[in-house]
Simulated scan of single mutants.
Amino acid sequence: MAKGENIFKRKDGRWEARYIKGYELSGKIKYGFCYGKTYKEAKEKVTKAKAALLSGKPIPASNSRHRFSWFCDEWFESGRNRFKESTCVKYRTILDKHIKPRLGGCFPLGMSDALIEQFANELLFEEELAPKTVKDILVVVRSILDYTAKRFPGTFPTLNINYPKESKKEMRVLSREEQTRFSRFLLDDMDACKFGVLLALLTGIRIGELCALRWENISLKDNTIKICSTMQRLKDMNPDQESKTKIVIGSPKSDTSTRTIPISETAAELCRKMNPQSPAAFVLTGTSHYMEPRTLQYRMERYTEICGLDGVHFHTLRHTFATRCVEVGFEIKSLSEILGHANTTITLDRYVHSSMELKRDNMNKLAAVGL
């Protein structure tokens, strides 16, 4: 047997030639076998078998030994400089926690629709992840597959990914009476934090945007608020750091989230009462020290508990603001830009809720036409 050949004589006297026929999805090698009465016969048969594989376009030599986990890391590194830090953390977590443990050992050319479907079902029913979370993970898988396909021109399988249907949840919105009650509580003995929460209720800004907001971003001359940054607590990807997370103040979540919001005279008057001497002070504290989103959420829980408001989170304020705007006849395009959405569809589908009061008002209008 020549060096490097997988041809040997068996105990029964025959010659056996072994060759790599393919790979299982787990990455395990699948061997093919050829037999002959002589070494020459076995070698001729295995040579023909290998040639048949080549004509059938098997897994090509280039990158054939790399499993899907390798392409996951390649995809991540190729886009790392384009991703925001928060996006890097999100993608890295998805890769390490979900995609690589379940799909990382597969060879890309062995992947199929059934495999992706099984992966999605495991996330939904074994890990019990929300459909929205599973969809986010599958979107990353789709992007990696598109990246990988470029390495195998003409041979990579066309895979269809079915995203789980998201059930539309009815978001909690404060009724007019609840909003009045909550506003009165915030106005009573108002400090910087209560003021910030009330400002969010009057403008619909996000929790991270409020935490990063400084007084220099508020113009009482023009009665506007400029949203140009957001605050997040992110996983620290630096292995040398003892702390697992860190506070990051960066640009908002999208280009449309960077915006200038006109404020009402009521909101402007409140700003004049609270305006500190230092423009660099954070709105939520009135000092150079910030309040992070997690702390604000704790404060919000205490405020709503005192007011007897159930199921109210900080994002409820944003939904409530959008609903009140619709109730007074706000033009949807303007509302979409104030909320920082990419288009009006997002505003209508996710943030506009028709309250019972508005439904009743509209039904009463029918009386004017005798219905």
Results as ranks from 00 to 15, higher is better:
D12M: 03
D12K: 01
R14Y: 10
R14D: 02
W15Q: 04
E16N: 11
A17G: 09
A17M: 07
A17L: 11
R18S: 10
Y19G: 06
I20W: 00
I20D: 10
I20K: 13
K21F: 13
K21P: 02
G22W: 09
G22N: 09
L25K: 08
K28H: 03
G32S: 04
G32F: 02
G36I: 07
K37Q: 11
K37G: 15
T38N: 05
T38V: 08
T38W: 05
Y39F: 08
E41L: 10
E41S: 11
A42N: 09
K45P: 01
K45C: 00
V46D: 06
T47N: 09
K50H: 06
A51C: 00
L53W: 02
L53Q: 13
S55C: 03
S55I: 12
G56D: 14
P58G: 15
P60N: 03
N63R: 11
N63G: 00
S64Y: 05
R65I: 09
H66C: 10
H66E: 13
R67D: 06
S69I: 03
C72S: 09
C72L: 11
F76V: 04
E77N: 13
S78F: 04
G79W: 04
G79A: 01
R82T: 15
R82L: 13
K84L: 04
E85T: 12
E85N: 08
S86G: 14
K90D: 12
Y91N: 14
L95Q: 11
K97V: 12
K97N: 14
I99S: 07
I99K: 09
I99D: 05
P101F: 12
R102C: 08
C106N: 12
F107H: 15
L109K: 09
G110L: 04
G110A: 06
M111C: 07
S112V: 01
D113R: 15
E117Y: 12
F119E: 03
A120F: 00
A120C: 12
N121D: 13
E122L: 11
E122T: 13
L123C: 14
F125G: 01
E126F: 05
E126A: 13
E127P: 00
E128Q: 14
E128L: 12
A130F: 02
P131L: 09
P131Q: 09
P131M: 08
P131K: 08
K132F: 02
D136W: 00
L138I: 06
V139L: 14
V140Q: 13
V141N: 07
R142L: 04
S143P: 00
I144C: 07
I144D: 05
L145E: 05
D146P: 00
Y147V: 11
K150T: 07
K150Y: 01
F152L: 05
P153M: 04
P153G: 02
P153I: 09
F156A: 07
F156I: 03
P157A: 09
T158C: 07
T158L: 12
T158F: 03
T158Q: 15
N160M: 14
